[in-house]
Design a protein around this nucleic acid. Structure first.
Lengths: 157, 157
DNA sequence: AGTGCTTCTGATAATGATTATCATTCTATA
DNA sequence: TATAGAATGATAATCATTATCAGAAGCACT
């Protein structure tokens, strides 16, 4: 469980999510907790098939419905970086800010972190640009596209 | 025609694309030239409906097929950042490197540019990170998500 | 300007991830 | 423990994108 390590952190996570949901009159059911656990247990964003593999008894339709609800509640972030399936991860206030290595071959995603100083410079620059466009910034998204180590091996050409 | 301004630049663009396609035994047909023109005429990435509006006589199936072929040829870049439709723009060697403002409300995309110095710092940092993962970097992708000026007006809440 | 060969095109059907529907089951609270 | 609001799972519907296929160009060579 890389993103949230200790048991204390995990239950704190659930407490926060539960609180958030109850504000919208949503219940933090076992299915939803398991969904959040699956996302928290992973170092990388998961697809629907990933989730089904982890929790085969959860109905796909329910998983999609719950992911959508959790996204609206600001608990989950959806990532559409190509591939057949969308990827899902816990949203920013719940996990640390990071970026992604996206494999253009297999569609896999790996989390990466920028140095704080660079990150901050970047955010300031983006906000300045946004302002000149009358654009109200929410968050940003930085992907490095390329070939992951595994795909490099398979296709040494 | 913002991205490629003068007639000279435009014909140079077509020359380059045509050359690229002939390397793969593909013809640079009128339909394909019109596709490239549509993309070059726009300041922002276009969706299939956008293209259909510009050139209503091009069959959707052909447009998709040609966009896919042009993408494989390195002429077009596909962007999957949300919204129902994928967005398409000319690929990097043909237009200047830039990033995007993505409206989470209407799905619209606007091109933005980072200062050269910051851009370079960013690229170096990303390459360094990639190396530690055995990841072979190709290009990167930076989006600022938020609400565009138009959507801010419509929803002043 | 005709033949053969390959590539393009457009219409249409197929695919497949995601969403909507709906009847049923659960849960919190009275 | 009755009830009203939510949640679930099975299923069907949606809809952007892809695949298919028959006919139309385009090119090379004669």
């Amino acid at each position: 469980m890389p993103t949230t390590h200790t048991e204390k952190e995990r239950s704190e996570l659930h407490r926060r999510v539960g609180e958030r949901l109850s504000e919208d009159d949503h219940r933090y059911t076992t299915s939803r907790q398991r969904l959040v656990d699956a996302l928290a247990d992973s170092t990388r964003p998961l697809t629907l098939p990933d989730i089904t593999k982890i929790a085969p008894d959860l109905a796909a339709s329910s998983v999609y419905r719950n992911l959508e609800m959790l996204e609206r509640a600001g608990v989950v972030r959806r990532i559409n970086s190509g591939g057949n399936h969308a990827h899902f991860e816990l949203a920013e206030p719940l996990i640390s800010h990071h970026h992604h290595l996206v494999c253009t071959d297999c569609g896999g995603i790996t989390d990466i972190h920028l140095k704080d100083e660079l990150e901050q410079t970047l955010v300031e620059a983006l906000n300045a640009i946004a302002q000149t466009h009358g654009f109200k910034p929410q968050d940003h998204n930085l992907d490095l596209h390329g070939a992951c180590a595994l795909c490099n091996e398979h296709k040494p050409a």
